[in-house]
Design a protein around this nucleic acid. Structure first.
Lengths: 252, 252
DNA sequence: CGACAAGTTGACGCACGTCAAGGCCGGTGG
DNA sequence: CCACCGGCCTTGACGTGCGTCAACTTGTCG
């Protein structure tokens, strides 16, 4: 399945030492849960930037949790048009649809080098049987994803190009900050304008002109392959959006 | 909360006699599950067409399963622009986001007279603890919703107006047929063009002209407040979409 | 040095949105 | 009975937001 570069468990992280623990965005595990998840974990996957982790139309026996790095989910039309659905950051789950419904109906590609936790799909049922709290968490994550997609749909359907762009950048920036992804001060978002365009449902050229307007208005900065938020409040106001909550969230 | 007309348990259906059982689209319950769900059910809600069942920004202590009728989920922008996110039909769950994440971030409105099964939000955890199969089903439903939203996003972002319309009508028609909603022969979909427009992310006028093209091409028929699919294959081809599966699905 | 990926900019056209007017119908009240 | 009204659909004229095409720049990697 494409160019997945899998470095076998060279430096596989033990769950108790998982870098996601102890972050204030994520909820804590009980000792018992931690033990179970350790057994649930089947391995670790390291991929290069650009690697396809999940492919539309395929059946996949695995479920992943992002440990580090970025990725995005997308769908293609037969003529090659691409729509990016959402971004994956540390703590996010990938492959749940496939685990429950059979065939994956979207692909996932790495935006940066990544490390992922690999779970056996068949063991998901054990998790549900033995750890109500964790099962609840999985559903929590699914409901959260639903909420994000809702907002995205509102954006594509009813916001203008510049509002959409403002929303998207504010959204990704906030999530990245919560996931501890960027430098301490400036929120550097590593992305190309092509990716933005495919997320916003716009053409590349028009996306470029829209980004330029945001730069001119001093809401963001753009430097070669990345964007930096300069005025979050301004972005939120332009997008007419309330921002995301900061309550701690579960992960598996 | 708006005009909810609640006829108290006058003719409340006992779960074992639930009209959804025995339909080939839905999976069967075990006797034990049925017993549990009977206890889980807290009452029944009957609403008129046009009633608001769930309201954006509110906290809601309940979780609903649609027993009969149609509804739709939507979000509003401050200026009143509306984006419809998805439609609810018999067997669908409403209010899960609120149950897990706290505040509802979308509203739900009845498209026809409806009956809904009401569950206590707090008992959801009991369900997870005692009935792994049902907990799995809830997650299944959430993942399915996610999949639908994915396809919708692809539509809004990358399909033209006529393709979007073809996709939407084919999609709703298929789901309605699976849920046993329409007459046996002709799939009459009761909807206004305003609703279609708000789902497609288009203006009312352009939606009208687009529908007209579909009628001219003999793909659908439109008669006052409803649409009828005349050539499903044609719609699917125009939308470049594979259609939905027919595997039996769970419900609660 | 060329090749390629990412960004920029201008010219032009079309798929949409907006505005405005009118038709058809059922319901309500005289 | 007609008069009036409010949903819903329809149609034309016109404007604009965004797509498409095409050219150029800059930086990076060989």
């Amino acid at each position: 399945m494409a160019t997945v570069v899998s470095k076998p468990p060279r430096g596989m992280v033990e769950c108790p030492k998982c870098p996601l623990h102890g972050m204030k965005t994520f909820r804590a595990f009980t000792a018992e849960e931690l033990a179970f998840v350790s057994g649930f974990k089947r391995g670790e996957l390291a991929v290069e930037k650009g690697a396809t982790i999940i492919m539309e139309g395929h059946h996949n026996a695995h479920l992943y949790t992002v440990l580090s790095g970025w990725a995005f989910r997308y769908k293609l039309l037969p003529d090659g048009k691409r729509q990016i659905l959402n971004y994956l950051m540390p703590g996010d789950l990938a492959g749940l649809q496939g685990s429950l419904l059979g065939e994956m109906q979207h692909s996932v590609e790495a935006l940066s080098p990544m490390r992922l936790c690999v779970f056996e799909r068949d063991k998901l049922y054990d998790l549900y049987r033995n750890h109500t709290g964790l099962a609840f968490d999985v559903t929590w994550i699914a409901a959260r994803e639903e909420q994000i997609l809702d907002e995205n749909l509102l954006s594509l359907g009813r916001r203008s190009a510049i509002e959409r762009a403002a929303y998207l950048i504010a959204f990704i920036g906030s999530r990245a900050r919560n996931a501890g992804l960027n430098g301490t001060t400036a929120a550097q978002i590593p992305m190309t304008q092509q990716l933005l365009a495919d997320t916003l449902g716009l053409s590349l050229v028009h996306t470029n002109k829209t980004i330029r307007k945001l730069v001119d208005r001093k809401l963001i900065g753009w430097r070669e392959g990345g964007c930096e938020i300069k005025d979050m409040k301004g972005l939120l106001a332009l997008a007419r959006w309330g921002g995301i909550g900061e309550t701690p969230r579960p992960f598996i």
